[in-house]
Amino acid sequence: MDWSWDFVAQIMPALTQGLLVTVEITLVSSVVALVLGLLFALAKMSPVGSVRRVAIIATEGIRRTPLLVQLYFLFYVLPDLGILLSPFTAGVIGLGLHYATYTSEVYRAGINNVPVGQWEAARACNLTTRQTWTEIILPQAIPPMIPPLGNYVIAMFKETPILSAITVMDLMGEALAQANFNYRYLEPITLVAAGFLLVSLISAAIIKLLENHLNLRAA
C-alpha cells in the first residue's frame, strides 16, 4: 500500500468538480423529496378511501425495492417508452422519489402527533378549517418534523454515490472514472469516504443541536 500525494493532487480538480455535482444533486432531490413527500402524505391521509389505498401501495412499493433498480428503471426503461432523461434528471427524480416515501411518513406522524384535543379546542373556538391548520395544527406539527427531515437530507447526500451507476459524474462518479483510468483505487475511494464521513458527521452534529434546541423550546 503506497499512498501517493502526487496522485491526490492530480485527481483533486476532478473530485472537486464531482463534489459540486453531488451537492447540486442533494439540493435538487431534497426539494423533490420534500414536496413529493408532502403530496404522498396528504394522499395517505385523504378522506377518499381509494386515494388512500393507492398512495399506500405506491409508497410501500417504492420503499421496499432498491433505489438502484428504480434508477435503472428510469434510465433504461423509460427511453423505450419515449421518455429520455439525462443521467442527472433521472438521478434526481429517482433519489427524490425514493426518499419522498420516507419524508411522507415524517409529515404524517408530525400531523398525527398533534393531540385530538387541539382540533376539538380549535372547533370550540369557532376557527375555520384554514385557521385551524395555519394557527393551531401546523405551528405545533412542523418543529418536531425538522430534525427527521434534516436527517433524510443527510441520508440522501450520503446516497448520491449510487447515481454513478447511471453515469452521473458526481463525486463517486469522478472518483471511479479516475480510478479506472489510472488503475489506482486507494486514493480516490479513500478520499471519497473521508469526504462523506466528514460532511455527514458535521451535519449530524448540527441536526443534533437543532433537536436539542427544539426540545428545550418545547419543554
Binding site: M1, E159, L176, A179, I189, A193, S200
Partner: peptide, 22 residues
C-alpha cells in the same frame, strides 16, 4: 459513526477495491 457516515455504496467499493491493497 464510521459506517453510518458513509454510504453502503462507498463501503462496498472500499471493501472490494481498497482492502486487497492492504
Amino acid at each position: 459513526e464510521f459506517f453510518r457516515g458513509t454510504s453502503i455504496f462507498v463501503q462496498l467499493f472500499a471493501a472490494y477495491f481498497v482492502l486487497p491493497l492492504v
